[in-house]
């Protein structure tokens, strides 16, 4: 352990523990997931950075969105994201979640994933190298230290507009809102 971090441990032990044990949900969207098996296995052992894949969203606090997001996948992404415990961090992996990438004029691919769920960081490239995941993780540590990885707080604050965007893309959602939405919003949606 780094000695100059001891004060940080005393100040905010929970934050430090979160930071060094990022549990990534093993959620496969698109082609980018092909980079994840070498990352978690022996060649680029991700556990050096405290990142391990977990099976269910209830155990995870890091969400890597790997690759293009179709409309059907977006529904699963939102459900998974809402099931994760706070604090939770999302990283868009590859150029497709950023702005559509090579699927920018596709009939069924979501452009700009940050319109639907909050994103804390992006890894650009098609494909990014496995090392890029570690660079992203170390950046994420800095962001967590500074309190800038606040996607889950922004989601709570702007839930109204996030939910509106989700319904614009997917039609009526079959699950209830995660956070309470006031009655004015309901009326605006009906119009």
């Amino acid at each position: 352990m780094d000695r100059n971090q001891i004060t940080k441990w005393f100040k905010a032990p929970a934050k430090m523990a979160n930071k060094y044990s990022l549990h990534a949900i093993y959620f496969c969207t698109g082609c980018g997931i092909i980079e994840v098996p070498p990352v978690i296995t022996s060649r680029w052992d991700a556990e050096r950075f405290g990142v391990i894949p977990v099976a269910t969203p209830r155990q995870a606090n890091l969400f890597l969105i790997t690759g293009y997001v179709s409309v059907k996948t977006l529904r699963a992404i939102i459900r998974t994201y809402e099931q994760m415990y706070e604090p939770k961090y999302t990283v868009g992996f590859g150029s497709c979640p950023v702005n559509g990438g090579m699927y920018w004029d596709s009939y069924n691919t979501i452009k700009h994933l940050d319109k639907y769920i909050p994103i804390d960081g992006w890894i650009a490239g098609c494909m990014p190298r496995p090392e890029a995941i570690f660079i992203a993780v170390t950046h994420l540590w800095t962001l967590i230290d500074k309190g800038m990885a606040n996607g889950y707080i922004r989601y709570r604050e702007n839930y109204k507009s996030y939910r509106r965007n989700q319904e614009m893309a997917l039609g009526k959602l079959e699950w209830p809102p995660l956070y309470p939405i006031d009655s004015n919003f309901e009326e605006a949606r009906r119009e």
Binding site: D105, Y107, I110, K111, K115, S161, N165, M168, A169
Partner: peptide
């Protein structure tokens, strides 16, 4: 089917949430 027109009409019309 004009994909570009469809994207402009549907996905590009959705505003940013924040």
């Amino acid at each position: 089917f004009d994909t570009r027109k469809y994207v402009e009409e549907v996905f590009d019309k959705i505003p940013f949430a924040e």
